[in-house]
Simulated assay, not measured.
Amino acid sequence: MSYSDMRRAAAHLPVTISSAILPGSLWGCYDAANDVILIDRRLTYTAKRCTLVHELLHWRHGDDGCSNDRSKRERRVRRQTALMLINPVELALLERMYDDDLWSIADELNVTMQVLEDYRAILYDTSPNK
C-alpha cells in the first residue's frame, strides 16, 4: 500500500494526519493531547509511508511522549513497524536477487533503510526477550 493509499485508509480513524515542516531531524510525531499525527512534508513517499505506520502505532498504543519508558516504546513501535511493512517471503526472494545490496532491497520493499535494518535485527536477534 502506498503512502497515499494509507492516508486515504486512515481517514476514518479518530486521529488527524497532516504534513508540516518539522524541526531538526524529526520525520514525524504523534500529539496525544490533540490526536494529531504530523509527517514532515520534505520526506520521500517511502519515508512518509514508513513514518505514518510508525506514528499510527504510537497512536494505537496511546503513547503520550511523556513517560520514562520512551526508548522502550520506540523499540516496540520500530519492531512492529518493520513487521507490518516487510513480507518475509518477499524479503527472502529479494535477498537472493540482490545479495547484500540492502539499499536495493529496501527500495524494492518500499521501506526505508531503518525499517529494513530493524527487521533484520529481529531476524538475527537470538535473545529470549524478543
Rank of each mutant, 00 (worst) to 15 (best):
A33V: 08
M6G: 00
R70D: 12
L38K: 00
I122A: 10
D35H: 15
W27P: 01
L93S: 10
A92L: 04
G65W: 03
S67G: 14
R7S: 05
T44A: 14
W59R: 05
M1P: 06
R76K: 14
E90W: 08
D101V: 00
M1N: 14
E108T: 02
R49T: 03
A106G: 05
Q114H: 11
P14N: 11
D118E: 08
I21R: 14
V15T: 07
Y119A: 01
A9I: 03
M97K: 10
R41P: 04
N87I: 15
S25N: 13
R79H: 07
L83Q: 09
S71G: 06
V77P: 01
A47N: 01
N129P: 01
H12Y: 15
T81K: 01
L83F: 02
N87Q: 12
I105G: 12
L109M: 09
V53R: 03
Y119L: 03
R96H: 09
H61A: 12
D69T: 07
Y30N: 05
S25L: 12
R7V: 06
D125C: 00
N68K: 07
C50T: 06
V53M: 10
Y98K: 04
L56A: 05
D99T: 12
D69E: 07
S71N: 08
V77M: 05
A20D: 13
D5W: 12
S19K: 00
L57C: 11
E95K: 15
D40W: 05
